[in-house]
Design a binder for these strands. Structure first.
Ligand code: SF4
Ligand code: SF4
Lengths: 131, 131
DNA sequence: TTTAATTACTATATTAAAGTAGAAATTACA
DNA sequence: TGTAATTTCTACTTTAATATAGTAATTAAA
């Protein structure tokens, strides 16, 4: 898979919050609206808040709001928050002992694929999802 | 991640067997040579055998041999054996309700990335890894 | 100041991928 | 024919990702 379930949740949350810019939405509503398990979602939201992609407001009538312009939030920004893999993973391991000189025959192909994906994540903003 | 650990194991096994074409190699040796857990490897080998990418020989002095020309085995052939995900996965789900007309704004970008990876897997054969 | 609604925190449960264990089936060969 | 080395089969264990549960902290408003 290109992205995992948690990353997918997070992207969809930001998409929703972008549509409701400047309106506070509670985790409960987000959960219902996007069909994401409530308790799981709240932890995702806390991380998005810590990463300052959303602002959180605690207490009664609290909720979340997108913290930046949708056009300023790249998919990659969101994905990175919930990513734990080494960026160099390939069939031979983590690439830590590989260099341009010692690279294997697959290296350039992996590189191309990964760059293709990465650029797609870098040049796609939440704004694009909302339109 | 582009491929999972099991798929990575399988590719490396085929690479090794291609290097030792026409020579029987036991799971034990493969395990030692590639540093793959023995018991896990044997199950991978059984699947590769069922899929006819390798021939297995049971009993004393038994082992495995590559069953085709290395140039005839695409990475995708191997990857598919150990893949269980829906090929259409994306942030919104499995794409089962999407068509060219109802597609979302991300669809073409996903498509490009996925095709880039897929073509790389389709046009890379085990032969290429051995050289 | 109390209540209700909310986020944040901490611990536990479930699921899927990866890994391990034991033994049955097969086979070469002494 | 018996033994040792192997693949194959079945069951279990561990680990990481996903999901659930309970409660503390916070806050608007009655
Ligand atoms: S050189 Fe080969 S093994 Fe090393 S990081 Fe690149 S693809 Fe992986
Ligand atoms: S149209 Fe969008 S939701 Fe549907 S398969 Fe394509 S990327 Fe996924």
């Amino acid at each position: 898979m290109i992205i995992n379930k948690t990353q997918s949740y997070a992207i969809r949350v930001l998409e929703l919050l972008a549509q409701k810019k400047d309106i506070l939405i509670s985790a409960k509503k987000i959960s219902q609206n996007l069909d994401i398990p409530y308790k799981y979602l709240t932890r995702v939201m806390t991380k998005l808040s810590e990463s300052q992609l959303v602002n959180s407001y605690r207490g009664k009538d609290g909720g979340f709001m997108i913290a930046k312009e949708p056009s300023e939030i790249k998919l990659k920004d969101i994905i990175d928050i919930f990513s734990n893999e080494s960026p160099h993973q390939c069939i031979y391991g983590d690439g830590s002992i590989c260099s341009q000189k010692t690279k294997c025959t697959l290296h350039d192909k992996w590189q191309n694929s990964k760059e293709s994906i990465n650029e797609s994540f870098l040049n796609t903003t939440i704004q694009e999802l909302v339109k």
